[in-house]
Computed example of a mutant assay.
Amino acid sequence: MTEARESAGPHARRVPGTPCWVSLMAHGLAATEEFYGELFGWEFRPGPQQLGPYVRALLDGHEVAGMGQLPPDHRLPIAWTPYLAAADVDHTADTVRECGGTVAVGPLDAAEAGRMAIAADPSGAVFGIWQGAAHLGTTLTGVPGTPAWNELITFETESVAKFYETVFGYEKEPVVSADFDYVTLHLEGRPVAGLHGVGHALRDRGPHWQTYFEVTSVEAALRQVADLGGRVLRQTHDSPHGRVATVADPEGAMFSVIENPH
């Protein structure tokens, strides 16, 4: 996890398959901006409006995430969505379909930002595909308030790993454990994302991608989430990469916060 974050930067080449952006579609954009602005110290400026009102979140002047407003009649789950880099989004979208996935939006141009599509893997987990302009995308990493990791929570990893390997060229590295179904996806020898098979523990949510954001203190972040109208879904626990907890914003969008030991 740490390697993937440290290798990114404003001049890093976006290897196809690299998580390069995270975006949240919510119903109340102004209230959502207020929540994340308070929690992570983000500021906002307008972004591409092809899919409706949209803002880019900035930290110390660097773009770190995006947020848009869903139409009132939209019934999709409110969720953070990672975007995976592509050299040719149209070709990648065709490959998604050929491998049993679906493409729900696009490919379409997003003003000067690049070209994008929103897709789902064969299990139904939604992700974005981004053919970005060279100067756009998440460039600030490894500091509080930035995306630190993206993880697919799914039923089992074996079949879905083949989909992502074929579409994006990942190499997979299983975590060897009798009771832990986990695969790390690698590009050019570095970890960029994880797949976590949890079986029937998914319940009614279904397979989904989950974004981790770095914070200075998980406990402080949990108190702030609650004060701002969010909920704690899983209390602080230790992981191989640092202390972590899972929360939801006031509209129910799930994400994790991680306190990374430096």
Rank of each mutant, 00 (worst) to 15 (best):
P191V: 06
V96F: 04
Q50H: 12
E156T: 12
T92Q: 15
M116I: 11
D249Y: 12
E112T: 13
G17K: 05
L51N: 04
A31Y: 03
E43A: 07
F163I: 10
G252R: 11
Q131P: 05
T81Y: 08
E171M: 06
G9S: 10
G169I: 13
G106M: 03
F155H: 15
P261V: 14
G206H: 14
A85T: 04
R223F: 12
G169K: 14
H27F: 08
P240A: 04
P72A: 00
P147N: 05
E173W: 12
E158F: 07
F255E: 07
G100Y: 08
M67C: 08
V15E: 07
L84G: 05
A226L: 11
V167R: 15
P16Q: 06
V126R: 12
F35Y: 05
P261H: 15
N150I: 11
V218F: 02
R14K: 14
V89M: 04
L29E: 10
P240L: 03
H208I: 02
E188A: 10
T18N: 06
E214P: 02
L136K: 02
P107K: 08
A12K: 03
I153E: 09
I78M: 01
R14W: 02
E259P: 02
T32R: 09
F35K: 07
D60C: 08
V244M: 09
T157F: 03
L59P: 05
G145C: 01
F180D: 14
V103D: 07
Q131W: 06
M254A: 12
G106L: 06
P82R: 04
F163C: 09
E165V: 14
F40G: 02
P82Y: 05
G17P: 04
A31K: 11
L24V: 09
D73W: 07
L70I: 03
P107G: 06
E214V: 04
G206E: 12
T246W: 01
E251L: 01
H135K: 13
D249P: 08
Q50Y: 15
M254T: 14
P71V: 01
A161Y: 07
P207A: 14
G66E: 10
Y212F: 13
V192N: 07
P16N: 08
A253K: 13
C20N: 15
W149V: 09
A104R: 01
D204P: 00
M1S: 14
F40C: 03
T184L: 12
H74F: 15
I78G: 00
A120D: 01
R190Y: 00
T92M: 15
G41T: 01
G242Q: 03
P77Y: 09
E158L: 10
A12T: 04
I129V: 13
I129F: 09
G194T: 01
G114S: 09
G100I: 06
D94H: 13
T102S: 11
A193N: 05
P16G: 06
F255D: 06
P240K: 02
G197W: 00
W80M: 11
R56N: 13
H196W: 05
I129E: 08
R234K: 07
V15H: 08
G229A: 06
R231D: 08
H241N: 00
T216W: 00
V192W: 03
D90Y: 12
G41N: 02
Q210P: 00
T32L: 06
A8N: 04
R13C: 00
Q224C: 05
